[in-house]
Amino acid sequence: MFKGMGGLGDMAKMMAAAKDMQGKMENLQEELRTITITGESGAGLVKATATAKGELTALDIDPSIFNPDEKEVVEDLILAAIKDAQLKASERSQQEMQKLTEGLGLPPGMKLPF
């Protein structure tokens, strides 16, 4: 296509690849909004669900833990479940991003988007 124009042909390929990657990144960001992860604490008594983007979408609490004398325990369990869901969401997001970028030749451990 750009024969005889030196490195411009390579530049055109790089630009096309960058545009393709941008489209894939946009699709991945949308997909991460639909993937749900559930974190739990207290052996499943409290469950928090979040998207792979880390947005909390649901909280499920077993009614057996509602004892007024144990309010602080319940609060701790809720926080622990939310943190677990957020950690799992972050890990899943990184896994999905790694799948997308493995063919790019980026240095190991480089996180996108920047």
Rank of each mutant, 00 (worst) to 15 (best):
A17S: 13
M14W: 06
M14I: 12
A52Q: 07
I78L: 04
S64L: 13
I37E: 00
V46H: 13
G39Q: 08
E26T: 08
A43I: 01
D76Q: 11
T38K: 13
I61R: 06
G44C: 06
G9N: 15
G7W: 14
K24P: 00
E40I: 04
I65T: 01
E26R: 13
T49M: 07
P63R: 04
E72T: 05
N67G: 12
I61L: 14
L45V: 03
P68A: 08
D20V: 02
I78V: 15
I37D: 00
S64P: 06
G44A: 05
D10H: 12
E31Q: 15
D69K: 09
L59H: 06
E40S: 15
T49D: 02
G39P: 01
A16Y: 07
L32T: 07
S41I: 01
I37Q: 00
A50M: 07
I82V: 14
F66L: 13
M11Q: 13
A50Y: 03
D76K: 08
S64Y: 13
A16T: 14
M25K: 03
E70N: 12
M21R: 09
M25Y: 05
A48C: 14
K13L: 05
G42R: 09
R33H: 12
A58V: 10
L8P: 00
G9C: 08
E30T: 14
M21N: 07
M14Q: 14
G44Q: 12
A81S: 11
D20W: 05
S64H: 13
V74A: 10
L8G: 00
A81L: 03
M11S: 01
G7M: 15
L32D: 06
I78K: 08
Q29W: 02
G42N: 11
E30H: 11
D10K: 15
S41E: 12
T36A: 10
L59C: 03
A52V: 02
A80H: 06
L59P: 00
A80R: 08
A52L: 01
